[in-house]
C-alpha cells in the first residue's frame, strides 16, 4: 500500500479519488486554526460579515504549534483533537472548505456534512510534531495574531503525511480499522 500524493487546493476529482484508510502525502498551501479561531469565524458567518480568509477548496489543519526556535520556520506542529471543532465545521464546509486535518473522531453531523459538501477529513499522527514541522517550509500568520498559538496561519507543506479518515462515501477509517483487528471477547460484557 503506497501513499497517494495530493496537492492543494483540492479539486473535485482529487476528492473523489480519496477513500477511508488511504495514506496520503499533502503538498501546497494549507490553513491552520483551532478552537478560538473557529469560534470567531463562525461568529462572523452568523453575523453575515466577511471572513478574513477565503475557504474555497482549502484545507484547515487543527494545530496550535509550539514557539519556533531561532532559525525554525515553525515549532513542533502536530494535530489537536478534532472533536472540539465539530460544532463549527459544518458551517465552514458549507462555505466551500474541502478538507480538515486533525486527530480523533468527528460527530455524525460533521460526517454527514462531508458527504453533502464533498469534502474529506484527514487524520494526522498526533504527537509526531517534530517530524511534521520538517514538512512545513513556510508559515505566516494571516489572521487573529492576538490568539498566539491559536492564530490562523498559512502553511506551505510538502509531503505532509496523513490518512483519510472520513471520505465522501461515508467511509470511516477508525471504525473500519478497528473492526479488522478487534477480538470480540475483549469487552466481555
Amino acid at each position: 500500500m503506497s501513499e497517494k500524493r495530493i496537492t492543494t487546493p483540492l479539486t473535485e476529482e482529487a476528492i473523489a479519488d480519496l477513500h477511508s484508510g488511504d495514506r496520503v502525502l499533502i503538498s501546497g498551501k494549507i490553513l491552520t486554526g483551532r478552537d478560538a479561531a473557529h469560534k470567531r469565524l463562525v461568529e462572523l458567518v452568523e453575523k453575515g460579515e466577511p471572513l478574513p480568509v477565503a475557504l474555497g477548496g482549502q484545507i484547515i489543519y487543527f494545530v496550535g504549534p509550539s514557539p519556533a526556535k531561532p532559525g525554525q520556520v515553525i515549532g513542533s506542529a502536530g494535530p489537536t483533537t478534532s472533536g472540539r471543532m465539530d460544532s463549527y465545521s459544518p458551517v465552514l464546509l458549507e462555505l466551500g472548505l474541502k478538507g480538515m486535518i486533525g486527530k480523533g473522531y468527528r460527530n455524525q453531523e460533521v460526517r454527514d456534512a462531508l458527504i453533502k459538501h464533498k469534502a474529506v477529513y484527514f487524520g494526522a499522527i498526533g504527537g509526531a510534531a517534530a517530524l511534521i514541522a520538517r514538512r512545513i517550509s513556510s508559515a505566516k500568520v494571516i489572521a487573529y495574531e492576538d490568539l498566539g498559538a491559536e492564530a490562523i496561519r498559512e502553511l506551505e507543506v510538502e509531503d505532509f503525511p496523513a490518512v483519510v479518515v472520513n471520505d465522501i462515501y461515508g467511509g470511516d477509517a477508525y471504525q473500519e480499522g478497528r473492526a479488522k483487528f478487534e477480538r470480540k471477547e475483549a469487552t466481555g460484557t
Partner: peptide, 15 residues
C-alpha cells in the same frame, strides 16, 4: 484485553 480492542496506533486499527 485493551490490545484486543483493535484500536491500534492513532486509532487506525491494529494490535
Amino acid at each position: 484485553r485493551a490490545n484486543d480492542l483493535g484500536i491500534g496506533p492513532m486509532g487506525m486499527g491494529g494490535r
